[in-house]
Design a binder for these strands. Sequence first.
DNA 1: GTATATAGTTAGTCTATCGAATTATTTGAG
DNA 2: CTCAAATAATTCGATAGACTAACTATATAC
Lengths: 169, 169
Amino acid sequence: MPAMTAKPRDRTDESLIALRRILRATELYARDLAQAAGMTPAQLRVLQVVDEKGGATPKALANQMSVSQATVTALVDKLVARGMVERRSSEQDRRQINVVMTALGESTLEHAPDALQQRYVRAFEDLADWEQAQLVSSLERVADMLDAKRLDASPVLTTGELPSANVSE
Amino acid sequence: MPAMTAKPRDRTDESLIALRRILRATELYARDLAQAAGMTPAQLRVLQVVDEKGGATPKALANQMSVSQATVTALVDKLVARGMVERRSSEQDRRQINVVMTALGESTLEHAPDALQQRYVRAFEDLADWEQAQLVSSLERVADMLDAKRLDASPVLTTGELPSANVSE
DNA sequence: GTATATAGTTAGTCTATCGAATTATTTGAG
DNA sequence: CTCAAATAATTCGATAGACTAACTATATAC
């Protein structure tokens, strides 16, 4: 077999393998990061979203994270117990609750040593200008190919918990 | 933050956002895929690894998936209960157990409609030759920047469950 | 003003995960 | 050869995250 001239099929596999490595690396680091911040990945994710948005309702958190409102309630309970966030009733609509950061939450997030992101950012910023441009365009292209519905995303590299998908047993 | 920003973002942020979109898309689809195959994401992942390797010991599965052996035992129990895999004692070392696919397991995997991967593969194969080459090189570059230890990966686009990381409470 | 819709919480159940203890088997040191 | 240490797997008990369904409180609409 001519080792050269990779057929399209080989390239597809190569791209999938690279993608899979990207996914696994971020998964693995998400655990370590959460551990380092003294909480679980799911809790950290809530904290990140609340921080990013400058406060959010459980409803909004549930949508953003694609989990049920009940799950958000449980996660927020734990973050409240740890003093990371507070619940504040809305004035306009008293059914709504706003989840907001506490000073402790802010500083915990601030000091979470995001090793993966730091390493990545450092490496990325060491690249030549044209290389950066090419990487961004490639990543966006792949994201478009995967993410048809264009989800709202933020520049924070953490994965969330996957739900157990409650399937028979 | 709204999707469209007037000011062009920093390129590092753009790349992180694209990465995050990739992660989220795969997470979301991992659930659907597992559901469609009639099992949970963690169970599906075990099945994929067993299939790929043509059988594996619980020890090997635990290493490959970065979970404890106890967890693997539990997952294999469920797959056995569903007739997807079998346990076979090793002849050489009778402490070892080999987990192997059943016909049902094979066919279930075969027929799992991996919408995400199919869509991605289709899109990828529609690209011009040079574009494919560029994408592969970009993805591998990113994978290297994230995954210092070069994990063993396969061309299967599924994310696993993140462990709860058993941190205080 | 009552009916309906919406936001959030509570209750009950399931899966995934862990660490520690247990069992069976292999290996190695005398 | 024998017995201690190491190794593979399982069992046990506990915790976290997730879901659905039911419930409470508030808002809106007719």
